[in-house]
């Protein structure tokens, strides 16, 4: 690579940053164009990082002021009523980590309290945080009336994972909890119909755990690990 080329690229990048993308797009040679684009990305990222550090105080928290109030008020509401249940409040109060014991009670409170009214369970996700870490279930809650949301994290022990069910509070949790049980083996206590959802009843192991090992065979069908002739 000649220094001639370098200056040419630097020129083009400068032009592109000023808004003239054609300067780069019009480069004939593919390889030079690629290098120019890469340089541009680098330059933009550096610029962004600078901007962020400057304006970190205003920009974080996200959204409009009212939204921010509602967000914090939900976690504030929770910490005022159930201060002992909260392990950690993360991400400006958008995410709250709870202890599992009173989760059912808190969920009912969340659904019915006039300031919360979290009547919709958006999503229920099971997570395996790693082979040495605990399992986790994440609840994304949303209120159709107040249009605010909160995310709840609850950890479960890896050896004997148990979390109270919210199946009767949000009926959607019925199948989603079954799916999490199916994939992670987390037992939702008092769930009325806790069976595997997607895998067959006699499947062994919890497939989405990080330490899951594939079965050698299932009902006499050998599970192919490597495609024949494709080693």
């Amino acid at each position: 690579m000649t220094s001639d080329q370098d200056t040419f690229i630097a020129d083009a990048v400068e032009k592109a940053l000023a808004g003239d993308m054609d300067a780069i797009n019009s480069i004939e040679d593919r390889s030079i164009r690629g290098k120019a684009k890469a340089a541009l990305v680098k330059a933009k990222r550096a610029a962004k990082a600078e901007q962020k550090s400057e304006s970190s105080e205003e920009s974080q928290g996200g959204g409009t002021p009212e939204e921010k109030v509602v967000q914090s008020s939900l976690s504030a509401l929770l910490s005022s009523v159930y201060p002992d249940e909260i392990i950690e409040i993360l991400n400006e109060g958008k995410v709250v980590q709870l202890k599992p014991q009173k989760w059912n009670e808190i969920a009912t409170f969340f659904r019915d309290h006039a300031d919360a009214l979290l009547d919709q369970l958006e999503c229920l996700t099971g997570v395996d945080l790693g082979t040495e870490e605990p399992l986790q279930v994440r609840y994304n809650l949303h209120s159709m009336k107040h249009r605010h949301k909160i995310e709840i994290l609850i950890n479960a022990d890896r050896v004997k994972p148990e979390i109270p069910t919210v199946e009767t509070i949000w009926r959607m949790a019925d199948w989603f909890e079954r799916e999490v049980y199916d994939m992670y083996g987390i037992v939702f206590t008092d769930h009325r119909d806790l069976r595997r959802l997607l895998c067959p009843e006699d499947w062994e192991g919890w497939p989405l755990r990080k330490d899951y090992e594939e079965q050698e065979s299932y009902h006499g069908i050998v599970v192919p690990k490597v495609k024949e002739g494709w080693e």
């Binding site: 999503c123 019925d174 199948w175």
Partner: peptide, 25 residues
């Protein structure tokens, strides 16, 4: 629901499918 651990492979990818909830009702 995407969880990233900073690598180029997703750490966890959950798809909340609308048809699943529709069937459960």
């Amino acid at each position: 629901y995407i969880i990233s651990d900073g690598s180029e492979i997703p750490f966890r990818m959950k798809m909340r499918s609308p048809a699943l909830t529709a069937l459960s009702v």
